[in-house]
Design a protein around this nucleic acid. Structure first.
Length: 421
RNA sequence: GCGGCUUUGGUGAAGCGGUUAACACACUGGAUUGUGGCUCCAGCAUGCGUGGGUUCGAUCCCCACAAGUCGCCCCA
């Protein structure tokens, strides 16, 4: 017996209702904010992610599902959707329609991680991308949509962290300052940080192993090194958020793992989830579009991990209660009644009633039991007597009352009763 | 990729080196003839994650692997 591959999960009928509930919320919200759905392929040329996400990032270096297809192309299962959305935006010249293109997506992403609750190898993200505008108002809108999404599902106590990671003008300056600061402390730092020193010195600030080292406090902060443009942008964003009453925490150590981020970086945490508490994250990526071959175009976006959102909803008991899925259960007595019962079943469905019956020819008692378990409001009982009389016994399973009705009138009767209930 | 913990039927689980692997729920059937949700009775793991090993004998001991889970890394 072959099981589902490690890190994947079947979404079973019972769970599907919760997924549909969340996806419906997403579509409503995106409609409200003017975002349009885009669906890009699950796999792309590996090259796209190398350019878009950046070599040297963990996602690209150790987490991608990459393979050579039969035509000798290097293909990668998308580990995120931003690069692909931008690729599509350029390939299909969406920029020609309007100056600002607002997209959202829902879909599977793939990363070869060690699985854990809230961290799957195939996982699902909902995300948005706003392409073509540099005004921090759009950054604020992006953050607000992310918060609205989570809050509209009933989640509370979300923590919004905010930072600016600068731009190609100021980040190199900051990098250098950091390296100067840490150079003489290299031998005290943990092994991870020694490699971070060259690769991504900003990550040293985020290191938990070295967090208690006294000198960490004195490390230069990115926000003190921003260029004027980035500074203004960051101030502008904070102003909008404050005006909107959105509370946030500045976190100068918040660094996004993907290379394409510039200026705004943010993360929304739901801490009860434990290690995988980052429920949504995003930011601005003004350099990405040019990197992928378009004209320089400012852009912002975020992505939310749906497994994590569902996990949080489950934990907080915020998922909608299961609905009864049957209106009427047809009970057939004896072999002779089977065919007429089946016919009645189909007529009920054609009339828009959710009807079910037993196909196994079981005892009446067993069928009644099934009817009771199905949460059906009514049972229609059909035996030889009823067939002779062109009638059917209609039992209200909630009131435990029953009456014999003429076959021709049952459907109307049921429709009336059910619409009242 | 690293470290810890876990792994018994459809589910929740008890269990001891040695032939009935508890109990509960679920499921199926029945308690005299055509009626559910209550009650009662019966049935339901030749099997204890997989593969090795130790032993006269292992679900309970050892090893490896796998999966799950917690934390790290990273991220959503």
């Amino acid at each position: 017996m072959t099981n589902a591959p490690r890190g994947t999960k079947d979404i079973l009928p019972e769970q599907a209702a919760a997924w549909n509930y969340v996806e419906k919320k997403i579509r409503e919200l995106c409609g409200l904010y003017g975002y349009h759905e885009i669906r890009t392929p699950m796999f792309e040329h590996t090259e796209l992610f190398h350019r878009g996400i950046g070599e040297g990032t963990d996602v690209v270096d150790k987490e991608m599902y990459t393979f050579t297809d039969r035509g000798n192309r290097s293909i990668t299962l998308r580990p995120e959707n931003t690069a692909a959305a931008v690729r599509s935006y350029l390939q299909n010249k969406l920029f020609a329609d309007t100056a600002l293109v607002k997209l959202f997506y829902i879909g599977s992403m793939f990363r070869y991680d060690r699985p854990q609750a809230g961290r799957m190898r195939e996982f699902h993200q909902f995300g948005i991308e706003a392409l073509g505008e540099q005004n921090p108002m759009v950054d604020a809108e992006t953050i607000l949509l992310a918060l609205d999404f989570l809050e509209s599902l009933g989640l509370k106590d979300l923590k919004l962290s905010l930072n600016s990671v600068g731009c190609p003008k100021c980040r190199p300056v900051y990098r250098q300052k950091l390296q100067e600061f840490f150079r003489d402390k290299l031998d005290v730092l943990c092994n991870d940080c020694k490699t971070r020193f060259d690769k991504n010195p900003m990550r040293i600030l985020d290191c938990k192993a070295d967090a208690d080292k006294g000198f960490m406090q004195d490390a230069p902060k990115i926000t003190d090194c921003l260029c004027e443009e980035c500074r203004d942008h960051f101030d502008g964003l904070q102003g909008y958020l404050k005006d909107l009453g959105v509370s946030f925490e500045l976190d100068s150590r918040l660094v996004r793992g993907l290379d394409y981020y510039t200026k705004t970086a943010f993360e929304i945490k739901y801490e009860p989830l434990g290690a995988q508490s980052a429920v949504a994250g995003g930011g601005r990526y003004d350099g990405l579009i040019e990197e992928i071959g378009g004209k320089p175009t400012p852009a912002v976006g975020f992505a939310a991990g749906l497994e994590r959102v569902l996990l949080a909803l489950e934990q907080q008991n915020l998922l909608p209660a299961r609905q009864a899925d049957t209106d009427v259960f047809v009970v057939a007595l004896g072999d002779a009644a089977q065919a007429p019962a089946f016919e009645l079943l189909i007529r009920l469905r054609r009339a828009g009633l959710r009807a079910a019956m037993d196909y196994a020819g079981r005892s009446m008692k067993a069928q009644m039991k099934q009817a009771g378990k199905s949460d059906a409001h009514f049972a229609l009982i059909l035996g030889e007597d009823e067939i002779k009389e062109q009638a059917v016994v209609c039992r209200d399973l909630q009131k435990s009352e029953q009456q014999k009705l003429a076959m021709g009138t049952v459907i109307d009767y049921l429709k009336r009763e059910l619409s009242e209930a």
